Simulated scan of single mutants.
Amino acid sequence: MKKTFIALAITGVIGAGIASTLVAAEPDLKTTDEKVSYGMGLVLGERMRNDLPDLQMEQFLQGIQHGNAGGDEARMSREEIQAALQEYQQSMQKKQMAEMEQLATDNQAAGASFLKENAERDEVMTTDSGLQYEVIEEGEGDKPTADDQVKVHYTGALLNGEVFDSSRDRGEPVTFGLSQVIPGWTEGLQLMSEGSRYKLYIPSELAYGPGGNRSIGPNETLVFDVELLEINPEAAK
């Protein structure tokens, strides 16, 4: 019993000693050089966390030490470093491509499931192309052609409800030619009379497809709440 107590006491003393050493070993941040050195390390560390998520800290710190010492102790040549970087970049590209392909597959399946269920609602109409639309308010004006320009207010969202673009949020409608937008818009707007407000459910093949864009993933089905304010507004002026 005494031996166990003594062993625990010794362990506690050693642990306390190690802890105090670690605390004491923390570098000062008093002088400008100390602050700049820490700041540069912090910024570099943040960049490495984003650029190199699998960073091996022990090897990384040794590389910094050897480089800062002039490189005489370097364990790799420049050629070996370049080869390792290329291999790493290639593996990351393959990983990203695999993730994008899986995301495209998942989005395609989610879109197909949503559109199938959505088509069963009485208020939703489906065209031959697969575009779905729902009349919120029917206008009494003319309908545009594919060669016309239109002035609209809109809100675009993903199936999860996330809004990725909205002229309403910006407080200003947009004007564009119907031949300059995604096929789902070109077709959908031609169904609308001036003054109408429709909800368009656009399959990925009528939107941005497998490529997506900056704010839209691959094979995303999109939902647009669109108001057709005016046809050929410049001509009317």
Rank of each mutant, 00 (worst) to 15 (best):
G12W: 08
A110Q: 06
L115M: 10
P203C: 02
A74Q: 05
L229S: 02
F164D: 12
E120P: 11
A16Y: 09
M76I: 06
K35A: 04
I18E: 05
E99T: 03
N107P: 04
G63H: 04
D51A: 15
T155M: 13
M1N: 09
H153R: 15
D169C: 04
L55P: 08
P173M: 04
D51G: 08
S37W: 03
F164T: 03
N160G: 02
I6F: 12
N213V: 11
G39C: 02
I81D: 10
P203N: 08
Q108R: 14
S204E: 10
A236W: 09
A74V: 00
V163Q: 09
E194N: 14
D28A: 14
A109R: 13
E138R: 12
F224I: 10
I14V: 14
S167R: 12
A236E: 11
M76P: 01
L191A: 01
T4A: 15
M76H: 07
A84W: 08
L52S: 07
G156P: 13
A112C: 05
A19E: 13
A24R: 07
M57E: 09
I136D: 11
G139L: 13
V135E: 07
A16D: 03
L52K: 04
F164K: 03
E101T: 11
V13T: 11
S37H: 06
V36D: 02
R47S: 14
D128V: 00
E140L: 08
E58K: 07
T31W: 05
R47P: 03
K3L: 15
V135L: 05
T145F: 05
V174R: 14
G195N: 09
I18N: 11
I182C: 01
D142Y: 05
S77M: 11
R168V: 03
D148G: 00
G41W: 00
L206D: 13
K30L: 13
Q89D: 15
F224P: 10
L55S: 10
M97A: 14
D142H: 12
L206Q: 10
E99A: 04
E120Q: 11
Y154I: 00
L131A: 09
